[in-house]
Design a protein around this nucleic acid. Sequence first.
DNA 1: GTCTATAGGTCGATAGAC
DNA 2: GTCTATCGACCTATAGAC
Lengths: 218, 218
Amino acid sequence: MPRPRQPRLTRQLIVETATALIDAEGLQAFSTRRLAAELGVRGPSLYNHFATKDEILDAVADAVAVAVDTSGFASRDWAAALLDWAWSYRRALTAHPNIVPYLAQGPRRRPAALAMADAVYGGLVRAGWPPARATHIGAALRYFVAGSALGSFARGFVEDPELYAAHYPHLRQAHRLAEHQQSVDEGAFALGLDALLYGLAAEYARTVGTVESGRPNG
Amino acid sequence: MPRPRQPRLTRQLIVETATALIDAEGLQAFSTRRLAAELGVRGPSLYNHFATKDEILDAVADAVAVAVDTSGFASRDWAAALLDWAWSYRRALTAHPNIVPYLAQGPRRRPAALAMADAVYGGLVRAGWPPARATHIGAALRYFVAGSALGSFARGFVEDPELYAAHYPHLRQAHRLAEHQQSVDEGAFALGLDALLYGLAAEYARTVGTVESGRPNG
DNA sequence: GTCTATAGGTCGATAGAC
DNA sequence: GTCTATCGACCTATAGAC
């Protein structure tokens, strides 16, 4: 079976190809000409589907956000929902780390990012957290997740034992971190997230749980 | 008194001007020609002081890192030292948010970044944390700080009430977040950091504090 | 140590033919 | 809806004069 004669451009195809290009070569490599080449067309053709380059980037960023699961806020207690959401959020971002600096500008006018913020904030307020506290909690978790997806901690140390031996005595083993990249990065995320939630649960018990017993979800 | 005849280029002057340029206009605006123009010289002159553009960027990134204070690890208990370091780290990064994506690649071969990692990791191990745990704690805090400096949470929501009213019912007040940018962003950081440290202290008491009573610092 | 000149590219976006 | 042609920029880095 031959290929379809011409893979007509669609917004979805453009977004998928742009995502793959950014994943493979970074935000700097993403240009309209380069993206068009990957799609087998010329640069100007993209402008029949998107008005500007930034509009394509917004679509890429929101496609990442649609993969984040916030369903826990409708069915589970706030702490379990936060845990599930944070892991899902991290999975979505680490799958496309090069777009994280763009995404971290905030939800702006992107629908999926706004829907995620709405679900998280709404879920926390419904659980009894004061509005200002709910905002802080959502922001703190975004900080943690975005930071963890922005760059691998383990791969940040070059694999050169001699670099560390002379001047950084405690980092003697740092050249081996890259060998264990996934367990280091995920272990750090798990430790931090668990500690964060442990601290939040303590505050909840101290301030919210004792005043009103927490309205049931839904 | 007239200006000095020609503000001769030095590495320090180049780095300071590059930092100001990146702060004001972002990483994209940072080019050798643009930087040279700010310095009153032509592009190629920079190559008498740095071999490549990336070498300048590394110098900018490390200049940010030298401002981070890790002295607490030499004088205070591990939890107080972590708290001081995290705030100092955050102050240094939020002063130059546009360089954070570059910095988040890790310490690589940058001396100040390596010295910071050495002090933090060494301090935690000396306090009795197992080496793997110390790595995770340092990484988790870097995630949190870098994420908080990468972009303001409060300024991520556009100031347009009508955007939220229709489809994001819980975000009805989100257009007002930008008015309180500093208190939202710092409050979220304070809440998250305190919760994180609370959780870490609980783990320390459970696993380290009971087994060996923690060697004194130094 | 700064300069001019230059190599050898890159970019976003538009106009108008087909 | 894709194409060619084009505008008017921009980029890192080197060679060699002064």
